[in-house]
Design a protein around this nucleic acid. Sequence first.
DNA 1: CTGTTAGCGCTTTCAA
DNA 2: TTGAAAGCGCTAACAG
Lengths: 324, 324
Amino acid sequence: MMAPNMKDVAKRAGVGLGTVSRVINTPHKVSPPTRLKVEKAIKELGYYSNEIARTLKTRNTRNVALVLPSIWHPFFSGFAYYIENYLDEQNYRLMLCNSDGKPDKEVYYLEMLKEKKVSGIIAITYNQIDDHISSDLPIISFDRHFKDDVTCVTSDNLKGGEIAAKTLHETGAKKLAYVGTINNRIDSEVKYRRIGFENYVKAHGIDHFIYTVEDPIRDYDAFLDTFFKRHNDREGVFVENDNLAKKLIKKAETLNIKIPEQLKVIGYDGVEETEFFEPKLTTIKQPLEAMAKASVEALIRIIETGPKVERIVLPVELKQGKST
Amino acid sequence: MMAPNMKDVAKRAGVGLGTVSRVINTPHKVSPPTRLKVEKAIKELGYYSNEIARTLKTRNTRNVALVLPSIWHPFFSGFAYYIENYLDEQNYRLMLCNSDGKPDKEVYYLEMLKEKKVSGIIAITYNQIDDHISSDLPIISFDRHFKDDVTCVTSDNLKGGEIAAKTLHETGAKKLAYVGTINNRIDSEVKYRRIGFENYVKAHGIDHFIYTVEDPIRDYDAFLDTFFKRHNDREGVFVENDNLAKKLIKKAETLNIKIPEQLKVIGYDGVEETEFFEPKLTTIKQPLEAMAKASVEALIRIIETGPKVERIVLPVELKQGKST
DNA sequence: CTGTTAGCGCTTTCAA
DNA sequence: TTGAAAGCGCTAACAG
């Protein structure tokens, strides 16, 4: 009545325990006749090997935690989708961990590594948790660096910022602005979007303004309101991410500013989240799938062959919409 | 150098193995002085207990698989968010499984139960997989029934359909329509949205038309095009879900049909997915969080205290927008 | 190529 | 209240 185990299979097939294990893990090391006997017994008993017991021996749970603020955000759910796909391809499974951006939850999930609940972690975190991260742990960090460096995967934020500035300028916007956040608590890669933008406008002597507030934004409406009040002469604006860009466009509409005639807008992310948004947003598209693939591959490399710190930067591209 | 185990702790604390185990699992069964000794040793060694080994003994992985078509859909990612929250509250973890709606992947993930990779499954499936489901397995099905009944969680689709019909009619639409799909392969609860709608219009002698196509919809544009060509006299339409409703509204706009003046539209789901969609959609809101909570609670009940089939139907409510 | 055996780290009787 | 010991189901080293 109880689920059969390997011993039951061995008995039924009239072979030793090890032979059954070999049929399952290294079938080529078993002679065809014995293999057949064992496979027959497995089928007859409806045997499934117990992953828990295997893991106790092999020490690899084949579980990976994806720690992120909230799966309920299109960018993250798209990322999670691809991560799960690539993990599954390598016979790994994805543990979903919503941190809500809270430091204690981020740490809490990182501890799963110690309890052997997972073999590795892909982390998208926004708090000061450097003490819990170390370069010999199987951790991939997304879009950020830690004191003790770990492998980091990002899109080419610097280039993205440059492309945005270039595009705005070349489509006729003379007075530009960057709208986004700054984060003094952690070493986020997102800042390079601004730096890339600045590099370009400075190199070309373009009139520009950097409009930022400390992350996270508490009051979007006030933030955007002030922007338009103080800088209503801008003709092109590069916004830190698509979500904020859309809010900015909606705000502009209430002020009767025509997009793109009076104001050109470029966002950053490029996830197909809102087929219904109008005007279709011009944006710097992150290679979501490639980033997921790179994250998974780097992590599994670490899990299976030991620590190795890399810095993986993937190319972005301009996705033309109707907002420029 | 290797991570310390329970034996190391026992040695350091000068107690037996069992005592350490007791300190961790049933501290009240250990005398305070010994407990203190053990706790000290645990801290000094930086010991974390190994979940894998524990599971081999206790047989509960405390992992739950959430099988769904794609996390990359706002309704599912919202659901997953809450599921993970409630699971975590009970010290369970969520394994994310994207099936892409493919039968073989659905089955593949269901098999994880047999390999003891997970202790239970919450399944949102769309294929003929009844042979792999049985009422004594720890499975919760979302929005559908199986041959061998398992606990099913749904929103009150029937009532939702009635409310939609009633609302459309009472706001002045005389000629109504239902737009959606039918599924002959599986026993989906979604059909009750249509049935509730029909119940109401028939009971009140309201002019109506049921416009459906076999699930899944291959060509949305053709589907909606035909609807408007053949039934352009409709004044109110209840659409099977918000996503389809939005597509229908966009289609109507291209035909210069004014929403809600010429056509009132009500959707179903009510997930805050598109703060930017206009006109704001009137919809039947599913109690996403309550459904997640109920699913988790029912599943853990089954995992921890044995099989029990329930039918859990949660109340819906009208969420007023600008499309009616 | 195959059988036997010693653990993996923990929980849980069973005696003491 | 505690320690000793017997597994949980599997893998892998070893001997044959």
